[in-house]
Design a protein around this nucleic acid. Structure first.
Lengths: 362, 362
DNA sequence: CTGAAAGCGCTTACAG
DNA sequence: CTGAAAGCGCTTACAG
């Protein structure tokens, strides 16, 4: 870490490794008994070398475990083949799945990944670190503080470094790929409307950050298409409990919904965790699901097929998202910077399971 | 990526960025109107500079977004402050939690993390890449092919690069921190014995890779302490289904156990996923849990508190593991290489919930 | 504060 | 195949 980035500890100079004999190609060439130039040629697979020489070098390489210094290579202009990935956190399963998928895809194309958690307020340092490492592109996965990420993207564009944002829709000038959450939520609500539901509890959806408002848009659109008024048929109790977006938050929210004089017949949750917590909360109170209440999740995590009842939810189609991400990155790597940001929407898929059934006729 | 690692694509030379004006401190110094040397002093916080000069440089730094080339810094001997992390995969929740926790801890100490998935057969490339990047240490998280990881660790030791293995116990000469799975499993079985259980179905435990045999050791020890014979009171049906270690594998296994003429009264699973799948499988067949069958998991993932019944499982105490990992790393960074490998065991914690109850007296 | 110089570990012409 | 040289972007004495 560079010391002139204020919040990082001052680095001590690297102490020489006592037991490492071969630090440079010069050392190594001496060890093999060849010229530096010749060794370099072998290492880079250049033509015009005797097979015998090549074998000699390869053998010594294997024996000594000598590794040329990547930093010197990059200084000489060799591409770094590194991509910086900023991830919102490493604890949200869908975000980690995207990270895993992207990392593998990049690896298969010969890129290594520098991965950092983009904590609020730390974005500047993270991106500067990536730039100092001369990464060939920076990818953001997740939702971030809007102004902070827009500032970072501005810097990257000024630097001529390609970027891509996965999931955070609606950022100015940003290349983006994200799930069409509006359409997905509309599909969820449509499904519930078709089952006769007319009153909906929204779990952790109503007061979402601006970038997530598209979920609300979708819900509103679906209701409007059925001639229903959003305010009249939705309820949110989000502020009643400390918001965590986890199982327990869903459980507590479900408990609160049971206190209402007029309960909604369906609960629509931000994610599978909240939905599963709600299932549990409702069952603890003695409700028979889905007869007494419909519940929907989001993300289609594997656990959604294992709960009782199994959970109706939305599949994000992560593979499609990442394949599209690769396209957008490649487009930038191969071509000059473009004026118009590339923005792609991925279509989710409603997965109907047991947690949604016909609305109880009161 | 270096081209002389056979399996990687040949790198193309990096094309110069058209729109990046300031590529070096020389450029930047010219832009600010100061000498390279002066700029370098400011960047490194050296004394003897007028505040006015410092401010001038800092302002220009902020305005231009100039970032000094980390590779050149490292060439000059500045430490890389990088740690390479090899992770078994990015889809196993406890492994990802360890990764997240370790990454944060390293970040807080000023290290950045190079993260790679250590796929079987790819270990050599991954470690060589880390070495070429001159990382200050390499950490392995998970279980690996024994010979492959031992070979890698041998290389690291020869290189004088510190290493640490998290979770893979019993490797030759390796600094290791891992959960005491034997003790944890003994605690699970003890608990079940205390409830009167005498016959146990083992789910994905019996034929585990060598490094996981410690679970079996623990089970055997607990049974022996109660005067019971392992072979006589355990059953495994692992080979009946394609092994996935996920929900569905547990569900299928549970179904197979129900076919047995003499069913065990308790199912002991490798992880929470398999246990939860088993809960589901048993309930689908109409069993009343835990009355008709006890089930235990492993890892204490959040979902374990949300299933019906909630799941008895083992907490890994990941924070302790990672704190210990940090100690072992620091010990190596600060001191000369030591002859004896450091090996630490972390104690897990049995978490009793609803999925285990008194054995049904047949 | 400036400027010229050396050197970190590499690659790449260039002459032998 | 060898060897001497230049240069990538930095830092660090050293003399002005």
């Amino acid at each position: 870490m560079l010391s002139y980035f204020p919040n990082f500890p001052v680095p001590k100079p690297m102490k020489p490794k006592a037991s490492t004999p071969l630090r440079s190609t010069a050392d190594f060439a001496r060890h093999v008994g060849l010229a530096r130039t010749t060794v370099s040629r072998v290492l880079n697979g250049q033509p015009g070398l005797k097979q015998k020489t090549i074998d000699r070098v390869q053998r010594a390489l294997a024996e000594t475990g000598f590794t040329p210094n990547a930093h010197a290579l990059h200084l000489k202009g060799k591409r770094t083949a590194m991509v910086g990935i900023c991830v919102e956190d490493l604890l949200t399963p869908p975000a980690v799945r995207k990270l895993a998928s992207l990392q593998k895809l990049l690896r298969d194309r010969g890129f290594s990944s520098l991965i950092e958690v983009f904590a609020p307020g730390k974005g500047r340092e993270v991106v500067r670190h990536f730039l100092s490492m001369r990464v060939e592109a920076v990818v953001f996965i997740g939702h971030f503080h809007r102004e902070e990420i827009e500032a970072r993207i501005g810097e990257l564009i000024a630097h001529g470094t390609p970027h891509l944002v996965i999931d955070h829709f609606g950022l100015k000038n940003a290349h983006t790929v994200s799930l069409d959450r509006a359409a997905a939520m509309a599909a969820v609500v449509d499904h519930l409307l078709g089952l006769g539901h007319r009153t909906f509890g929204l779990l952790a959806i109503a007061k979402a950050p601006a970038s997530r408002y598209d979920r609300l848009t979708g819900i509103q659109a679906a209701l409007r298409a059925h001639g229903l008024n959003f305010a009249g048929c939705t309820v949110t109790l989000d502020p009643l409990h400390e918001r965590d977006n986890d199982f327990d938050y869903g459980r507590k929210l479900a408990g609160s919904f049971l206190q209402l004089a007029h309960r909604p017949t369906a609960l629509v949750a931000l994610n599978d965790e909240i939905a599963i917590g709600a299932l549990r909360g409702l069952q603890e109170a003695g409700l028979n699901l889905p007869r007494d209440m419909a519940v929907t999740g989001f993300n289609n995590q594997p656990i959604a097929a294992m709960t009782t009842p199994t959970l109706t939810t939305v599949n994000q189609n992560i593979d499609t998202t990442i394949a599209t991400a690769a396209e957008i990155l490649v487009a930038q790597l191969d071509a000059p910077p473009r004026a118009k940001p590339m923005v792609r929407m991925i279509t989710g898929e409603l997965v109907v399971r047991e947690s949604t059934g016909p609305a109880r006729t009161a």
